[in-house]
């Protein structure tokens, strides 16, 4: 990084540290922070979408759809996320490739399952065998986002389901009295009002999501925890210019600070949103705000 970094053995103190902290490997770690933030930014709305779909399905008057929604919510909530992550990505990847295989290679005469091997025709591989590395990484990232969204979507569905039930019946009845159809009262009355009931649950879910990111390395995405472990482990002089003993303690302390700061910022932002949503609502919180302003 810096010009004086050519001979790390001769360096000391701050200079050594500044060279050490800017090695290519450390830069990978700083990039990983971005990866984690990007994943969170994409996963949160995706999980919300899954959750909304799940909750709507569970409330559906069409029985099979309601069952599907309820089964999705209860099964995925019942399984530890870590157990899910350990096999789900491979399963998802194989499922995609199997579907593509059926579509793209209908004339393929070989078995897909040859003993232990899973083999689809080359055109069906995801990504294609000759794709660039960044395509592979993007695909892996996409699978991770999808897995996270499915898992956390189930929890979000549970929260939203409860929130939809919590909107006072009288509101829906009034909508019906005004002659609104089921669909109209759902979109115009129920959905706008449910958020205030859902927000405490959703904000907790967001906190859980933040703290689930260390599991990303199970999904093949190199996250900050992977790098902290990799960089912190003791290094012998034979393989690096910056040998050091087991420094995981310091790296993990840095992670701790990162997570605590991230949580704190989230708390403050969510608190603001809650206050905004509560405004004008017929709840205790809304009443309190009204009185405080008056």
């Amino acid at each position: 990084m810096f010009s004086f970094c050519t001979d790390p053995d001769a360096l000391e103190g701050v200079k050594w540290l500044s060279c050490y902290l800017t090695t290519g490997k450390h830069q990978s770690m700083y990039w990983a922070v971005g990866t984690v933030l990007l994943l969170l930014a994409i996963t949160a709305p995706a999980a919300l979408l899954f959750g909304f779909g799940g909750a709507t399905a569970a409330r559906s008057r069409f029985r099979p759809l309601a069952w599907f929604g309820k089964i999705y919510i209860s099964i995925v909530r019942g399984v530890p996320d870590i157990a899910f992550f350990l096999f789900f990505v491979i399963a998802l990847d194989q499922a995609f490739e199997w579907v593509r295989h059926q579509v793209k290679c209908p004339d393929w005469d070989q078995e897909i399952w040859q003993g232990n091997d899973f083999r689809v025709c080359p055109e069906a591989k995801l990504p294609l065998g000759n794709a660039a590395q960044w395509v592979h990484e993007t695909y892996g990232f996409f699978l991770a986002v999808l897995t996270f969204a499915i898992v956390f979507g189930a929890f979000a569905a549970n929260v939203l389901y409860g929130a939809m039930q919590a909107v006072p019946r009288a509101q829906i009845e009034t909508a019906e009295a005004y002659g609104m159809t089921h669909r109209q009262s759902f979109w115009r009355i129920l959905v706008p009002q449910m958020w205030v009931y859902a927000l405490p649950g959703l904000s907790n879910l967001w906190m859980v999501l933040i703290k689930a990111t260390p599991l990303l390395f199970l999904l093949g995405v190199e996250d900050i925890v992977y790098w902290a472990r990799e960089l912190g482990g003791s290094k012998t002089a034979q393989f690096t210019d910056y040998p050091h003993p087991d420094w995981r303690m310091w790296y993990f302390a840095a992670l701790l600070v990162f997570y605590l700061a991230f949580t704190r910022v989230s708390e403050i932002v969510l608190d603001k949103i809650m206050r905004r949503l509560t405004k004008g609502q017929a709840t205790m919180g809304g009443e309190k705000q009204r009185k405080a302003a008056a």
Partner: peptide
């Protein structure tokens, strides 16, 4: 509450073990 809710469980395990 803030420290234990704000940090991932596995980091808590790590520090506790040390």
């Amino acid at each position: 509450v803030f420290v234990f809710r704000g940090s991932p469980l596995f980091i808590q395990f790590f520090f506790a073990y040390f």
